[in-house]
Amino acid sequence: MGKTTTSASIGTGLAQRGHKTVIIDFDVGLRNLDLIMGCERRVVYDFVNVINGEANLKQTLIKDKRVDNLYILPASQTRDKDALTQEGVEKVLDELSEDFDFIVCDSPAGIERGAQMALYFADMAIVVTNPEVSSVRDSDRILGILQSKSRKAEKGEVVEEKLLVTRYNPERVVEGEMLSVEDVKEILAIDLLGVIPESEAVLKASNQGSPVILDADSNSGQAYTDAVGRLFGEEIEHRFLDVEKKGFFKRLMGA
C-alpha cells in the first residue's frame, strides 16, 4: 500500500530540510523500514529492546549515511506485538522528543495493537491510501479510530489529518479501473497532502534500500518532495494527476 515507503520518504524529506528526524518502525514482527532505508545490516538493538530497558536509545538509533539529521529506530523481527506497551512507547517518545524535531511513526497495516500504538500519541496523521474502494474504506475506519482512541481525542482535541494517495495511475482512472483523487477526497473529506504516481522508481528504490524521495529524477520522488513542502504550508500545485500527453515523437516511436 505504501505506508513504509511514505514514512521513509517523508522522514528523509524532513531531514533534508535540516530538521532532526527519527523514523520509528511500529511493525513489530515484520520489520520493513530498515530494508527500505537500506540499513538492515546495521540493526543491533530494536524498539522493543529500548522499551524493555535492554538497550538505550543511543545504542539503538541508526544514523542514516546519506542524509544528515536522519535516524531510524528499527522494529523487532522476533517479538510479538504485545511487547509494545502504551507506557513503554510513551517513555521512548518522550525521550526522543527532547532531541528530535520530528518523530515519524511508521504504522503497520490494519487496526491492531501496533497501529493503535503508532497513532495514539500522534499530533498529525498522514493517512496513506490507494485509489481503490477497499483501501479507502480502511482509511475511513482508521480515521475514526484516530479521532476516538488517540491521546488527543481523549483530551477532546483533534488530530490533524492529511491524505496521501499512493500508486496513482491516471490512465487507469480514465479507464474507470481506479478511483480518481476527487472520488477519494469526497469519500474521506480530509485535506490532500499529496498524490504519488504509480512508478517503477518506487520498486527500484525499495530494492536498492534507498527512499524514493532521493531519486529526484523520478516523478514519485518529486511528488514526495512536493508533499513535504506542503507539510510546511507551502502552496504547491498537485502534479501527475492527469494522463501524460504523448508528444509527436513519442507517438511516432510508439513509446
Binding site: R137, D140, R141, L143, G144, I145, Q147, S148, V158, I187, A189
Partner: peptide, 26 residues
C-alpha cells in the same frame, strides 16, 4: 466531526445533528 466506518453514535432521549459526513459502515 465525520462519523467514520465502524463508529456508532447514539443520541439517547433526543435528536441527533451531524454536521459532517456519516461514512459507509458507520
Amino acid at each position: 466531526r465525520p462519523v467514520r466506518g465502524g463508529q456508532q453514535i447514539y443520541a439517547e432521549g433526543c435528536d441527533l445533528i451531524v454536521l459532517a459526513q456519516v461514512s459507509e459502515g458507520a
